[in-house]
């Protein structure tokens, strides 16, 4: 996000959309990747990696919940599809061809392919789940996705190929800082471009008024299912990254609380604000660790109580979230233009 935010003021809307800055960003990420783990303690490194995964999750969920105005509660379900599949692919490959482990390039390629496969599987599942529920009004999706999380848990619990109740262990730790933040930058870039395209305007029109949108000739079901499937893809990739970071998976890893954490990131950041999701994802990942001493002190997990209260109070007091539907750069631009209009005013 750093290169995009700072460059927007100079080059306007086209600058942030251009691929150039994103490639520079990915380059910086891989430069950092080499020496970051040695520079900071493993604890902070873990927080940074988890923050990156949460950015992918919250930005992709924002496409569904924020821009399209549907309410999905099954992001953890798609994570588990992607996570299990990619972990299954890499573990079985590593088991059958142990020599691949010695070649770092082969490892990265296998990991990338397994992540994409996991994402595609999540997309397919998202399509199957989304099609019946997205034909109807938004709230059915909430309960269907919630139920889907349960179905997927039961299925993994009963599938011996992925370890059943014992879970899948011995996954190679492929996930690095570079991998997570490359994926995060690609996610933000893709979703940014989708939202600012004609397709994105279809999604926003569905959110604003579905009936009017239908009247204008928009196939709303198709738009919703596409957004949902795309969100599921990135959730699947994030699940793969998460699985290869944890190195063990069990059916309880992706429970409803994980979905809920992502939802609160999206709601807090502002439904319809990509930068809001990024900021909220980083903020809540850090907050979760910052609240850990409180948990040790009281002996109970207060975090979820705090999170749920924040959600209720947010809805009552500021339902649009921190940023609403605007982006960080919009706020900067507003401030600049206001200053331009009142040069002698002093305060902005």
């Amino acid at each position: 996000m750093a290169p995009s935010g700072s460059n927007n003021e100079q080059s306007g809307q086209t600058g942030i959309m251009s691929l150039r800055w994103w490639i520079v960003g990915i380059g910086i990420v891989w430069l950092l990747n080499a020496w970051l783990p040695e520079l900071i303690s493993p604890y902070f490194f873990q927080i940074i990696v988890l923050a990156g995964i949460n950015v992918i999750l919250s930005v992709s969920l924002n496409l569904v919940n924020g821009f399209t105005g549907q309410f999905s509660m099954g992001h953890a379900g798609f994570m588990s599809v992607g996570g299990y599949l990619s972990a299954f692919i890499t573990t079985s490959l590593v088991a059958s061809h142990p020599e691949l482990m010695n070649d770092p390039v082969a490892g990265v390629v296998i990991f990338a392919i397994s992540l994409i496969m996991g994402g595609i599987a999540a997309t397919a599942v998202g399509y199957i789940v989304g099609l019946p529920s997205l034909r109807l009004r938004g709230d059915y999706l909430a309960i269907v996705t919630l139920g889907f999380g349960e179905i997927i848990r039961v299925i993994f619990l009963n599938t011996n190929a992925v370890g059943g109740a014992r879970g899948l262990s011995g996954i190679t730790k492929f996930t690095t800082f570079g991998a997570v933040y490359t994926a995060a930058l690609i996610t933000v870039f893709c979703i940014w471009r989708v939202v600012h395209s004609a397709h994105g305007r279809i999604l926003v029109s569905i959110r604003e008024d579905e009936i009017a949108s239908t009247a204008m000739g928009v196939n709303t079901t198709e738009g919703k299912v596409r957004a949902f499937a795309m969100g599921a893809f990135f959730a699947g990739v994030a699940g793969g990254l998460f699985a290869h970071y944890l190195t063990t998976l069990n059916p309880g890893t992706f429970d409803f609380n994980r979905s809920f954490e992502v939802i609160i990131m999206v709601v807090l950041g502002g439904m319809g604000s990509i930068s809001g999701s990024v900021v909220a994802a980083i903020m809540l990942t850090v907050l979760k660790e910052a609240l850990r001493p409180l948990q040790q002190l009281t002996g109970v997990d207060l975090r979820m109580v705090i999170y749920s209260l924040v959600l209720i109070i947010m809805m009552l007091a500021r339902p649009k979230g921190i940023f609403g539907t605007s982006e960080i750069c919009d706020l900067f631009r507003e401030k600049l233009s206001r200053r331009g209009k009142h040069p002698d005013g002093g305060s902005a």
Binding site: N65, G69, F71, M73, G138, D139, A142, F260, I263, V267, M271, V300, D301, M304, V305, Y307, S308, L309, L311, I312, M315, L316, P319
Partner: peptide, 25 residues
């Protein structure tokens, strides 16, 4: 929240549900 968009009501409902679950614990 009755006058606000339905999605806000839904989010609140989820929040209330989780609040009771965790406060209950």
């Amino acid at each position: 929240l009755r006058a606000s968009p339905r999605i806000n009501l839904l989010i609140t409902a989820v929040g209330v549900s989780l609040f009771f679950q965790n406060a209950g614990q």
